[in-house]
Design a binder for these strands. Structure first.
Lengths: 234, 234
DNA sequence: ACCTGAACACCGTTCAAGT
DNA sequence: ACCTGAACACCGTTCAAGT
């Protein structure tokens, strides 16, 4: 009551690129990426929107900067975890790195969408890929195969995949199920798959039955195993 | 001079959802997805922006519809190509389907970005996945493995991958190369890779050296081969 | 040097009004 | 039934002005 109802941001701390980027992440974490507007961002910082332009060129630069902070978070998480980093053991090293990156992406579900829209590759991101490349090279990959490997991993190298069947927001699973069964003639295989899975699973399973973590690891291991066979074949 | 400078759209043909969607695709093809605004779309159709809302609920519905038209194009392209469709030969069938889908995506480079932002899965898209599922099932996959397979393919099932290193727009390849060499201490593996590749290739190779088609097929075959090994293992 | 108020040129969308 | 003009509530961004 005694204090003013201003946002929590301390008016003493001067604005900086760093503060702008971290505030942007906070806004996106709280309200989703579509809630991240220059005006909202300024409000979060207790400042007028136009003041932001003294620290970032424009909104695109904010999004570019956010990605770098995100990659930085991955690097930090990797530094915190005590990995032996055996040069020969490229597969577990790679696997761990990617699963760690995935943890960061799960903390910021909007981040993949931002990363996908970036056109330029920042130095920070190049350093990240340079390290992945290093792991592969030290593990016996030719440059050629390592290059193919990074392409084959694609966005998985950064810890996310494009989920085409997203979690159905309405969560009315029974209705979805009923609707699906009604279309059994049009979607016989999908309906068949769902019937089988819902009988097998012990918990209540329906459209929300995909175990994202398990699927991510399945796809990742499929790729890593395939690559391993290629390195070993020479 | 005699005729008015109105857009080419015939004012006789009444507006319809179909016309709106095809005009939207034309706008995006010509000016990119960011040029697709309701006002621009109306202009393309020789109509006021607000008239569109009699045929589509809102802009999101336009984007949803576009995706369905896109999937329809894939289906048409597949129907045109005479495929024997041997039930047992799931791998070449799958491969052909996906590469055909990729051709459509290459014709509409903005389409992947639109697909990625869709939250609901339309009936058209479900039918597409139902067919992929059918190919796998008839090829000997269990529902469980077929499900994993679709997740592992991810957006590749629709003919695109998330390219994290996009074509560098500025095309000043020599400058890029020089800059990279300058960072050899920070990016030793990337620089090493580029040096090797640029020596091997016969054409002028630099940052624009990735053969997207070859990389797509590499990743696709890596996945399909991995799956094949799993089906055969039972 | 850093921040601001007002303004500009856009968006998507609503609504009452036209035919 | 179908289309429209004007308006509303937003955007990102520019610019001259403040301190």
């Amino acid at each position: 009551m005694a204090t003013e109802t201003e946002p929590i941001a301390q008016p003493r701390v001067p604005l900086s690129r760093e503060r702008v980027l971290h505030a942007a992440i906070a806004v996106a974490d709280e309200g989703g990426i579509e809630s991240l507007t220059m005006r909202k961002l300024a409000e979060e910082l207790g400042v007028e929107a136009m003041s932001l332009y003294h620290h970032v060129a424009n909104k695109e630069a904010v999004l570019d900067g956010i990605v770098d902070v995100m990659v930085g978070e991955v690097d930090e998480a990797l530094a915190d975890s005590d990995t032996p980093a055996d040069p020969v053991e490229w597969k577990p090293t790679m696997r761990k790195r990617i699963l760690t990156a995935r943890e960061i992406m799960l903390r910021h579900p909007w981040a993949p969408g931002v990363i996908e829209t970036r056109t330029a590759v920042s130095l920070v991101l190049m350093r990240y890929f340079n390290e992945l490349l290093g792991i592969l090279r030290e593990g016996g990959f030719s440059y050629d195969l390592a290059h193919h490997a990074l392409h084959a991993l694609g966005s998985r190298a950064l810890g996310f995949t494009q989920e085409l069947f997203k979690p159905d927001g309405d969560t009315d699973e029974e209705a979805d199920m009923a609707m699906l069964e009604q279309m059994a003639d049009q979607l016989p295989y999908i309906v068949g798959m769902m019937m089988e899975v819902s009988h097998d699973a012990d918990d209540d399973s329906s459209l929300g039955w995909c175990d994202d973590q398990a699927e991510f690891e399945f796809g990742l291991d499929l790729t890593l195993d395939g690559l391993e066979r290629l390195v070993e074949a020479g």
